[in-house]
């Protein structure tokens, strides 16, 4: 077996493991936001990209970020900007994958987005639709620091991961689809808001960044085998758990600057 084949086999195994891990998550009572967060992180592990984020279309009329591979504030802004322009918005409207191997290439499709991406160090981007038959629920964005066209293989794996996200959101995807999408989607979007509120409370109580607050919430949820949004609710409702969380772990000081 030459080196190339070996690397490929290893990657295939990791990809397979990821799908098994994600399938394991899709059990009764699973947390959609946690699943999407895991998905965003696995994209970075598997796909030779530097950042990933998932945006869902709020039926009221905006694309909302629900998960990102890192909580770096400027990266989050880049995702949010896509409510106005960017590959994710185009992908969402067309329902088709959007690939931009070099954002700086003329003519620039999204000048504001490109400038913001450049500031954070990204030069290439790919967006995959979260599709359920005729409906597009949102899109998954992959960012790279290096320019270049992604391999066909990575593109296929990425679309498969995006499909897992869709299944996660609409896990009871049987009949009466539009109704269920409204029910599930709104629940997922609201869970994200609960988590943001809890992050704010925890950040203020512990005088840490909101990014660190998220890391604490997630670690606590993992260690106690609880849903992320359930832990967030406890933080909001009980002062004691906030103290326990803040005591549980010292976040790395390097993150402190990035609020």
């Amino acid at each position: 077996m030459n080196l190339r084949t070996k690397v490929k086999t290893m990657l295939d195994r990791r990809t397979a493991q990821t799908f098994v891990e994600l399938a394991d998550t899709l059990v009764v009572g699973f947390d959609v936001i946690d699943l999407l967060q895991t998905l965003a992180e696995r994209c970075v592990d598997l796909l030779d990209v530097d950042a990933a984020g998932i945006l869902l279309a709020d039926q009221r009329g905006s694309l909302t970020l629900v998960a990102a591979s890192t909580e770096q504030a400027r990266l989050l802004e880049l995702f949010q900007l896509q409510d106005e322009e960017g590959p994710c918005l185009d992908c969402y409207h067309s329902g088709q994958m959007v690939t931009c191997p070099d954002l700086a290439a003329q003519p620039q499709q999204w000048p504001r987005f490109t400038a913001a991406a450049h500031q954070v160090g990204f030069t290439a981007v790919q967006a995959f639709p979260l599709r359920l038959r005729d409906q597009v629920l949102g899109a998954m964005n992959l960012f790279s620091a290096a320019t270049g066209v992604p391999s066909q293989e990575n593109t296929s794996v990425a679309q498969a991961l995006a499909d897992v996200a869709t299944i996660g959101i609409t896990h009871e995807r049987t009949l009466r689809e539009h109704q269920l999408i409204t029910e599930q989607l709104q629940h997922a979007l609201n869970s994200r808001i609960v988590i943001e509120q809890a992050k704010g409370m925890l950040a203020e109580r512990g005088q840490i960044t909101v990014g660190d607050a998220f890391t604490l919430l997630r670690a606590y949820a993992r260690n106690h085998n609880q849903q992320l949004s359930a832990v967030a609710r406890q933080v909001i409702n009980q002062d004691a758990i906030m103290a326990e969380l803040l005591d549980s772990q010292q976040p790395s000081p390097s993150d402190k600057l990035d609020a």
């Binding site: 943001e196 704010g200 409370m201 925890l202 950040a203 909001i236």
Partner: peptide, 8 residues
């Protein structure tokens, strides 16, 4: 929402 949590 983060700001709301902080203000609370």
């Amino acid at each position: 929402h983060q700001a709301t949590g902080m203000i609370a």
